[in-house]
C-alpha cells in the first residue's frame, strides 16, 4: 500500500484527533495530498506506479469526504473508540424524535398545496437545520464526556434529518423545474 493504511484519517492529514476541524486547513491539506498522489502526476510512469497512485488518490478522497462531513466525521471518531455497527443499532428508539420526524414528513407532503410552497419549504428547512445543529451539539457534548451511547444515538438522528433534508431539496428542485 502506498499510504500507510494503519494511520488513522487524522494522522494522514496531520490533524489532531478531534471533532473540531478548520475546514479551510482541511481543504489546503487535501489539495496538497492530491498533488502528491493523483494519477495525473504519474501519467508518464509505469503501470505499477499508476496503480499505486490510483489507490493513494482514492484513499485521500475517501478520507477527505469522511473528515469534511460532520456526520461522517462523528461516526469515524466513534469508530476509533470501538463504537459502530458491530456494537450498536443503526437507528434510534427515541419515540418523541421519531414522531417529530413523521410530522415533518407530513408537512413536506403538504407543501405543494400551500399558497407559497417556496416559503413553506424554507420554513421547514430552517426548523430541520436547527434540529441538526442541536443533535450535533448533543453529539459533541456526549463524545467529550465519553458517553458514546448518547453520542451514537445523536448521529443516527442526524441521519434521519439528512434524509428529510434530501427530500426537501428534491421537492424544491421539482417545484423550480415546473415554474414558467
Amino acid at each position: 500500500m502506498p499510504i500507510d493504511l494503519s494511520a488513522n484519517h487524522f494522522e494522514l492529514f496531520s490533524l489532531p484527533v478531534s471533532f473540531d476541524i478548520d475546514l479551510n486547513e482541511l481543504g489546503e491539506k487535501y489539495r496538497a495530498l492530491q498533488a502528491a498522489t493523483h494519477p495525473d502526476k504519474f501519467a508518464a510512469s509505469d503501470a505499477q506506479a499508476q496503480r499505486i497512485s490510483v489507490q493513494g488518490a482514492t484513499h485521500v478522497n475517501e478520507v477527505y469526504e469522511t473528515l469534511k462531513d460532520p456526520l461522517r466525521r462523528g461516526f469515524y471518531l466513534l469508530e476509533l473508540e470501538g463504537v459502530g455497527l458491530g456494537t450498536h443499532e443503526y437507528t434510534t428508539s427515541d419515540a418523541m424524535f421519531l414522531m417529530q420526524q413523521l410530522e415533518h414528513r407530513e408537512a413536506l407532503e403538504a407543501v405543494t398545496d400551500s399558497d407559497d410552497p417556496f416559503a413553506a419549504l424554507d420554513a421547514l428547512r430552517d426548523v430541520v437545520t436547527a434540529e441538526e445543529e442541536q443533535q450535533m451539539a448533543v453529539f459533541k457534548a456526549a463524545y467529550a464526556a465519553q458517553d458514546y451511547d448518547t453520542a451514537y444515538d445523536a448521529l443516527t438522528k442526524v441521519m434521519f434529518i439528512r434524509r428529510l433534508q434530501d427530500q426537501i431539496e428534491e421537492t424544491e428542485a421539482h417545484l423550480e423545474d415546473e415554474l414558467d
Binding site: P2, I3, D4, L12, L33, A35, A36, T37, I52, G56
Partner: peptide, 15 residues
C-alpha cells in the same frame, strides 16, 4: 514507488 509516494505525502504535509 511506494516509498516515493509516502515521501511525497510527508513533504506535502510538512507544508
Amino acid at each position: 514507488v511506494e516509498r516515493r509516494m509516502n515521501s511525497n505525502i510527508r513533504q506535502a504535509m510538512a507544508g
